[in-house]
Design a protein around this nucleic acid. Structure first.
Length: 224
DNA sequence: GCGACAG
DNA sequence: ATCTTGTCGC
């Protein structure tokens, strides 16, 4: 792991400069290893936002069955600022990831990869500082425009920003609102959507993110 | 200057 | 993200 997360000092301009530096380290090439285990990570909040709750789920790439689950809690350090999401959620996410019994071969992150103003969404940021292959799976667009996407699972359209393709809008399920998929690190622009389709089928979200999402938001658990 | 704006 | 029940549709 290269850098750790710098403490939040309220300096937005400085944070943006750091993103630009780290974005230069992103590698959009498929050099991830054979997939034995993949992980899904997501963040939720407790105590009206005072506590950040990060969840990591390790999944067997063959059976798609969960092998391990981890929940890490940390005091929330900064507010949500569009474009700077990783500075708020990465600390807890890194802790949860480090507590998994096995290092995953690929990580699905809830949020964007390079589909970001400075090409460093939370998935790309996590990839660069952990060195792990990552893919960003978002539910809505931060930046970029695209043409209408076909109605069936697998249909897609490139997401463009300032004349460049930064990701793809992918229909993961017939007639269901498409996902915004973009590579984070060590995965190519073309492979990212294929992996999302490969790890999902009956739900809108791919299994790794769906399970992490449930864990992070307290849902799949006892709640009344 | 006026909006837009991942989770 | 979070506050929240039932309800419409595949």
């Amino acid at each position: 792991m290269t850098n750790a997360m710098p403490p939040w000092d309220g300096n937005v301009a400085k944070a943006r400069r750091l993103q630009t530096e780290l974005a230069a380290q992103v590698r959009l090439v498929d050099d991830y290893p054979p997939l034995k285990h993949v992980a899904g990570v997501d963040v939720g909040f407790e105590e009206s936002g005072a506590v950040t709750r990060a969840a990591a789920v390790l999944i067997d790439a063959q059976t798609m069955a969960p092998v391990a689950e981890v929940v890490a809690r940390q005091a929330t350090r900064m507010p949500y600022i569009p474009g700077l999401l990783s500075f708020r959620e990465l600390p807890a996410l890194l802790q949860a990831l480090s507590e998994l019994p096995q290092v995953p071969d690929l990580v699905f992150v809830d949020g964007h990869g390079v589909a970001h103003p400075r090409r460093l969404g939370i998935a790309a940021h996590l990839g660069v500082i952990s060195g792990l292959p990552t893919i960003g799976v978002g539910k809505s667009i931060l930046v970029g425009v695209h043409e209408e996407v076909g109605p069936h699972r697998g249909d897609r359209q490139p997401l463009e920003y300032k004349g460049e393709v930064i990701g793809c809008v992918l229909r993961s399920k017939d007639r269901i609102r498409p996902l915004i998929v973009s590579p984070g690190h060590r995965v190519s622009m073309a492979t990212a959507p294929e992996l999302v389709l490969a790890f999902g089928r009956k739900y809108r979200l791919p299994e790794p993110t769906r399970l992490a999402d449930r864990l992070a938001s307290q849902r799949g658990t006892v709640r009344r």
